[in-house]
Amino acid sequence: MGRPRRRPLVWRRVVNGSVPYLLVSPVVFVLFAVLAYPIYYLVRISLEKFGLFELIQHHGVYIGLDNFRSVLHDQIFWHTLLRTVVFTVANVSLTIVGGTLIALLLKRLWTAVRILLTVGLILVWAMPPVVAVQVWIWMTNVQNGVLNYVLTTLHIGNYDGHNWFDSPFSSLAMATTLIVWGALPFVVITVYAALSQVPHELVEAAEIDGARAWRVFRDVTMPVISPILYLLTCLSILWDFGVFTQVYLLITQPAIVPANYVMGVYLWEEAYFKTDYGRGAAISILTLVIVAAMSIFYVRRMVRVGEVA
């Protein structure tokens, strides 16, 4: 069209080169806006004495690493950490094993029953944790809980007036049932989807060769679904390690004691209940470090999956 072409060319190259950055910039901007200041503030508070008095004054007193020192010298922190690890292992294994078994069951069911079961799972998924906790509290009620009634009626033992929240172990076991119940649908549906990737011919061939069910599962099904199981396990660990709602609401305030703390509850009690935000921030950062270390496995696998794709 007779116009000079040099300038637009350079301009276009700059524009084209920056398109990926432009596209990713809103996400980066939002993440930065939402996370950067809170994280900076968290780190700052963790290095300060910051209680109710300092909250009113609007500034803390710098004390270096004292909060971290006091947390790391606190027996309760180490006991809570160990308890949380055991609690997470129990929850995750129950979720993954149970979820896989139900997914395998789904494969074998009539369509009508399968739809019924799937609808049930979706309903569980749709139930907000806070509501589920209330239902659990009713069911495990000391005086009128249906759990005590059923166990007593079935002559499994005398559970009349049995208090399920009597010991820390029993309390957390109740929380585990609730957490696993709530986590199952996601695992079942994801594993079920993965199972549809298992080539039917391979299963058939193995069966013709005389392989038993367990052998077929181990050598044919497992290799196909194991990447999905790996990711589900990683995600479940991250979720269950930081669990708060179910444990906190189910055990409820006067019964929450250091003997039944998990990390999320410990953090909440120190920061918000005892209004020691400095210590709370230190615990929060330590938890963040632990979770970040654990998520390395997850991120590495995600990157590898991305490369393959």
Binding site: I137, N141, V142, Q143, G161, N163, F165, D166, T252, Q253, P254, A255
Partner: peptide, 10 residues
């Protein structure tokens, strides 16, 4: 059985 219970539940 109420020896270790609290007044919130029941």
């Amino acid at each position: 059985s109420a020896s270790k219970l609290n007044e919130a539940n029941p």
